[in-house]
Design a protein around this nucleic acid. Structure first.
Length: 346
DNA sequence: AAATACGTCAACCGCGCGAAG
DNA sequence: TCTTCGCGCGGTTGACGTATT
């Protein structure tokens, strides 16, 4: 026995809706609430399929629907979410107040995917499209992305709900690390309830940092890091400008050019010798890379590190490399990042 | 001015999941 | 355990408006 159709196809209107066809379900839902979509058309006096009514309500008629163009901030958010979740539009929509999954999906397919492609980024994988073997920056970026996801995936087994402190005492604090899967489960559950208009959970996880002399701690490798994480609910990893390199703390200064990758991460990069970059987009040329490696092999004394790192020039993409000035800025000023997206990595 | 190409987006469609019987 | 139902999701379509030739 086959499955019953959602509605009779005979005498059912299709295509664009009239104002009356919008008013009737709105009045009905205001009185009776959402749900029972199959029976709604008949009860509301509509010649429409129930599924069609549901779709119209969710994508257009709901009072919380935000009108107007998608803003740059919303685009940025969508790109980040897509990098993390792929084509899970409903979940992405749950993070963008007032926007529907359909709207976001359309916007992605018509604009954002092309936008990324024009930057040389594959909109499906969010990796650089390497045109040829000489595109070292692209290759390295892709390698970095893979490593980042690998390590973040591993850490997710340990960091759920842990309080993670990085830096001296209160210098660098992540108050709460959310479990992505659990978070999404909550999201989906809430979506299934009558009110799909979810406010964005801000996950106000502030990350700030300072530096100075506190770089006497460096996890030896991923095993040690995992051991530390397992042994305590609170992991304190003193971190400074050197650790930003050695332990894989990355952030993206080139926010204007690549806002979608402005994700702050820190994780143990056990093969740090391959990590010549300072952050996502700062890939150095060969000469600078050699210089950088040499500096790493002969670490400076306390307090001298910022001056030692002086990688000048531009990378293969033409961006200026991290230099002493940049590093000093980051080392001495607190950097606070709205980082629910960082939490999502976990 | 007409024809064509292109972009946008609302709507449709089929599949799959979970709940209920 | 199986079947049916109701719903939600993501891929796709097609109508419509705008730009280009």
């Amino acid at each position: 026995m086959g499955r019953a159709p959602c509605c009779s196809k005979v005498g059912v209107n299709k295509g664009a809706r009239s104002a009356e066809e919008d008013n009737l379900p709105v009045k009905y839902i205001q009185t009776h609430g959402e749900g029972n979509w199959r029976s709604l058309p008949k009860k509301a006096g509509l010649r429409r399929c129930g599924k069609s009514c549901r779709l119209r309500w969710l994508n257009y008629l709901r009072p919380c629907i935000k009108r107007g163009n998608i803003t740059a901030d919303e685009e940025e958010l969508i790109i980040r979410m897509h990098a993390l979740l792929g084509n899970r539009w409903s979940i992405i929509a749950g993070r963008v107040p007032g926007r529907t999954d359909n709207e976001i999906k359309n916007h992605w397919n018509t604009k954002l995917s092309r936008k990324l492609a024009s930057r040389g980024i594959d909109p499906k994988t969010h990796k650089f499209i390497t045109m040829d073997s000489s595109n070292r920056a692209g290759d390295r970026f892709n390698q970095f992305q893979s490593e980042k996801q690998y390590y973040c995936s591993r850490r997710s087994q340990h960091l759920v709900s842990n309080v993670v402190k990085v830096g001296r005492s209160t210098d660098l604090v992540i108050p709460h690390v959310h479990n992505l899967k659990a978070d999404l489960k909550v999201q989906e559950t809430e979506n299934k309830s009558s009110n799909r208009s979810l406010p964005v959970e801000s996950h106000n996880t502030n990350i700030s940092m300072s530096s100075d002399e506190c770089y006497n701690y460096t996890p030896a490798d991923s095993a040690e890091c995992a051991s530390l994480i397992n042994s305590s609910d609170s992991v304190e990893a003193k971190c400074d400008s050197r650790d930003l390199h050695d332990n894989g703390c990355h952030w993206n200064e080139k926010h204007d050019e690549f806002p979608e990758y402005d994700v702050f991460n820190f994780f143990d990069v056990s093969n740090a010798e391959n990590e010549i970059c300072c952050n996502d987009d700062y890939w150095v040329d060969e000469e600078s890379a050699d210089q950088f490696v040499k500096q790493k092999q002969a670490p400076p004394q306390s307090g001298q590190w910022d001056k030692q790192i002086d990688v000048e020039g531009k990378d293969n993409l033409g961006y200026p490399c991290m230099n002493a000035h940049d590093l000093s800025d980051h080392a001495n000023n607190d950097v606070t990042i709205m980082s629910w997206e960082a939490a999502l990595w976990y």
